[in-house]
Design a protein around this nucleic acid. Structure first.
Lengths: 210, 210
DNA sequence: CTCAAATATGAGACTACTCTCATTTATGAG
DNA sequence: CTCATAAATGAGAGTAGTCTCATATTTGAG
């Protein structure tokens, strides 16, 4: 029985919450190892060190636990990102910071990546939630005259797919800051920034905040 | 029992080849309807109007038939694209033509899209095959001074992910030339073309060849 | 047309899971 | 510590598919 984000947050609570958290953590880990579809409920309970039937005391089916896990991880990632983004005014820098920090978080917790990537594809609400942040920064960039694009839902899809591919590559081949930097540059190019300004935004946006 | 690409090509042949082709066409259709994982062997035989056991006279498992179907469709798409690309010298125009015609073909045969997108993710060789064409055109563009990028495997991943997202959006919402045009522009931006030249390349590359 | 070979058939054995529930075990309030 | 309640357990019924094989049917060469 491994340990994870959900158990951390259920530490002081009653047994019910702790078992639930163990199942959520196990689900995240199993999905990361075997993929969304291949993850069986019995894999999850085994990974959590619990009996098969225990699952049904807490969740009705695989979809529910995965939705809940994805939502919980998404919330945590958003919380961390929000903290790091506070006070950044320039939209280009915001996009670079959000992208590079988002990727960095998922490289620290690679198990989260599979769940979040999968849920972005499969869950309707998750995708919209993630897009709200992104859309805000893109519109800000247009208003600031930094980006030269029309902010459509297809544009959001394209930016998201670039971020997703950067995550997938690093998940496969190991964390690689050059890939992150490259994808930031690609995104800014996509948004219509001139190369020189893009490079500058990347330098300031990727600097690790002390 | 519907009709499809593989049956067209097995028309004059023996029963063995015709049944095989019916199974391949059925597999493509079922995968398009239910997705790679959800497609059952019994769905495929039912769609082909054959008994369940017949499947095993021709293929050993689902993976094999899907690999074969993807390869066959990939070959056909490559054949069509090759014909349309012959004689186009300018790399930017080649990229625009390849992208827009590729998408156009998959909008005419939407069932093919699911199989090709799925196989690009899952099959190692398929992806490489597709990338060979793309890499050639990108390197040509760099040599011609039209593109301002380093041609890495990650760059190919990024371009492919943009094309994939354009296909997915149009598969969902219906064919939309504006989306295709938009993704061509995005790709050229990614490759470092200035906006004015990009627009010009799109105009000449997307003109429908009489 | 005939018939041996090739092919298709589908019932059912097998496998792998999901989900239920009567029972056992653990919890924590008093 | 006691005990009513909450939670966990795991055997097994149910379900959904894969794959096999003895049998029926079709094919096409002669």
């Amino acid at each position: 029985m491994r340990h994870g984000h959900f158990q951390d947050h259920a530490a002081g609570q009653g047994k019910r919450e702790r078992t639930r958290a163990a199942l959520l953590d196990a689900a995240v880990h199993v999905v990361a190892e075997k993929g969304l579809e291949a993850a069986k409920i019995s894999d999850i309970t085994t990974a959590a060190g619990l009996a098969n039937g225990t699952f049904y005391n807490h969740f009705t089916d695989k979809d529910q636990i995965l939705r809940e896990a994805a939502y919980g991880l998404g919330l945590e990632v958003a919380r961390q990102l929000d903290a790091e983004m506070a006070g950044i005014e320039d939209a280009a820098r915001r996009v670079v910071t959000a992208t590079s920090r988002f990727i960095a978080i998922l490289m620290i917790e690679p198990d989260w990546a599979a769940v979040l990537l999968g849920s972005a594809d499969h869950l309707p609400g998750m995708r919209e939630e993630m897009f709200r942040y992104l859309r805000g920064d893109l519109e800000r960039g247009v208003a600031q005259g930094r980006f030269n694009v029309e902010v459509t839902s297809f544009l959001l899809d394209q930016v998201a797919s670039l971020i997703a591919v950067a995550i997938r590559v690093q998940l496969q081949a190991g964390a690689d800051p050059a890939v992150t930097q490259q994808v930031c540059e690609s995104i800014l190019r996509l948004l219509g920034m001139p190369p020189a300004k893009a490079r500058k935004a990347i330098e300031s946006g990727m600097r690790v905040p002390s």
